[in-house]
């Protein structure tokens, strides 16, 4: 989605009523974020809305330096910026990809299913992934869920986006794109200069 560099778009302040709306929406989408919400988005702080190409809006905290929080394509769900994901890694649905897939993801390819179903990858399993990998959850995820993509052997997430197919289907077919048009490390959104 952000393969090309993004020219800094127009920045405008968000009304406080809209700000409340964003806040509640974020909590609704990511219930686990609730205890941290005051840290992420202090009530008194001003939010900025930055228009990006392709009808994407980025919401950022208007401090200095500016802290990017969420981005949204039209009326799709709010998707956290990777810097936010890195700060609160435990608050989102997560999957893991194997090492071989990292370089493709970081150069902007769609995440393909085999990267997540192979031995190095992790998807939510009904009977758990074992002690070590409890964090990948036990419930199957539906298409459209926002997932954070972690990588084998890495601590931080490398991509975030919406699932194109459900995890159940992924396990069954082991083929095709799993996450398309996501936000990955080193893409235009990541490198965007915000002030």
């Amino acid at each position: 989605m952000f393969k090309k560099e993004i020219p800094p778009g127009t920045k405008s302040k968000v009304k406080s009523s809209v700000q409340r709306g964003i806040r509640s929406k974020a909590i609704e989408t990511y219930p686990l974020l609730e205890p941290y919400m005051d840290e992420i988005m202090p009530k008194k702080e001003q939010l900025d809305m930055i228009k990006l190409p392709d009808r994407v809006t980025l919401y950022a905290l208007s401090a200095s330096p500016v802290v990017p929080l969420f981005w949204q394509h039209m009326d799709d769900p709010l998707i956290p910026h990777l810097r936010l994901v890195h700060r609160f890694p435990d608050c989102f649905h997560r999957i893991r990809i194997d090492r071989g897939a990292i370089r493709f993801v970081l150069s902007g390819a769609a995440l393909m299913t085999p990267g997540a179903t192979s031995p190095g990858g992790r998807l939510p399993e009904a009977d758990g992934n074992g002690e070590e990998d409890y964090r990948y959850g036990t419930e199957e995820l539906a298409p459209g869920t926002v997932v954070v993509v972690e990588a084998e052997g890495k601590e931080n997430a490398c991509m975030v986006g919406q699932l194109k197919v459900g995890t159940k289907e992924m396990k069954a077919t082991k083929k095709g794109a799993a996450v398309e048009a996501g936000h990955y490390l080193g893409d235009g959104l990541w490198n965007l200069h915000l002030d």
Binding site: I40, R87, F88, P89, D90, C91, R135
Partner: peptide, 14 residues
């Protein structure tokens, strides 16, 4: 399943 959710003081990772 989040470990951080059990913590009393919300804290972001640096």
């Amino acid at each position: 399943n989040g470990v951080a959710g059990a913590e009393s003081i919300p804290q972001s990772k640096v």
